[in-house]
Amino acid sequence: MPLDQKLKDAFADALSVDQSVITDSLKYQGIPEWDSISHMVLISRIEEAFDISIDTDDVIALSSVAKAKEILKKYNVSS
């Protein structure tokens, strides 16, 4: 599965929103569903999807879908 789709699935699952909501411009706290609590679930789902462990600094830095893609590059994930 392409990386973008995998990430979209993780976001949609963690935030319980439709995939159409998940765009690069979507920001943390930009919708009610992406709050500090669901952010914890989101990190967990991304870790599971890509089999990585995200550092605390990156947990905080992951403030948008676009930023998530940028951070994932650091972890050398592949689709």
Binding site: I43, S53, T56
Partner: peptide, 10 residues
């Protein structure tokens, strides 16, 4: 606890 919560979320 911080690390355990990440684990329990799985």
């Amino acid at each position: 606890t911080r690390l355990a919560v990440k684990s329990i979320l799985k």
